[in-house]
């Protein structure tokens, strides 16, 4: 869900950049050198995991996983997502340099919100963590789609139809993302519970 270059207007790009710079600055400040290799390698893991394409009805969609990334990394979600997006821009030209701010914010901020809301609940076990992780996956994709739609709509009234379509197209993805996030959290709680405790220290 990247907005490509050349679509958004200067004020929207500048606001996105400013918000992301704040998020990046806080994220980097809270990240000490001890946890830096771990954050980077986990971010790479998320990048690879998002290559998983899940069937939704007749179509297929790749995982977003920004909710889970927020749950596990907290404030480090900003640098982790920024690094992935820069690489995509440089290697594949998906998204670009000026839209990096908006794209980083639209992915990382919902993850951060998911961490605030659900971070404490996911290691409780049972129905509580299942519901919390479903909520984290569902809401962060919803929130991301809304931010992208808002960025488009603020760039001109002609983009409003496109913005509405993007939100509607993401409705089934939200449900799948919620289910998958819940299933991944349950898997991690059985296999590597230490990973889930990570976000709380954030």
């Amino acid at each position: 869900m990247h907005i490509s270059e050349g679509v958004l207007t200067a004020p929207v790009l500048a606001s996105g950049a400013a918000l992301s710079v704040v998020g990046l600055a806080i994220g980097l400040k809270k990240l000490d050198y001890e946890r830096l290799p771990q954050t980077a390698i986990l971010a790479a893991g998320f990048f690879v995991a998002s290559l998983v394409h899940v069937p939704i009805g007749p179509a297929k969609a790749h995982l977003v996983l920004n909710g889970l990334l927020g749950l596990l990394l907290g404030w480090s979600a900003f640098p982790a997502i920024f690094v992935g997006l820069v690489l995509q821009a440089v290697l594949f030209q998906y998204g670009g340099l000026t839209s990096l701010g908006v794209n980083t914010f639209s992915m990382a901020f919902p993850g951060l919100v998911a961490w605030w809301l659900f971070g404490r609940l996911i290691s409780r076990g049972g129905a509580v963590s299942a519901a919390a992780s479903f909520g984290a996956g569902f809401l962060s994709v919803l929130f991301s789609a809304l931010i992208v739609a808002a960025a488009l709509a603020l760039s001109g009234e002609q983009f409003i139809t496109a913005a509405e379509l993007i939100v509607v197209a993401h409705l089934p993805i939200m449900v799948v993302e919620g289910l998958l996030t819940a299933a991944i959290v349950s898997f991690l709680s059985r296999v590597r519970p230490a990973l889930l405790a990570n976000g709380k220290a954030g």
Partner: peptide, 13 residues
């Protein structure tokens, strides 16, 4: 697929 994605994360951790 959840286990696949989860396993990639476990391996990275």
């Amino acid at each position: 697929y959840a286990q696949l994605a989860g396993m990639v994360l476990v391996k990275s951790y």
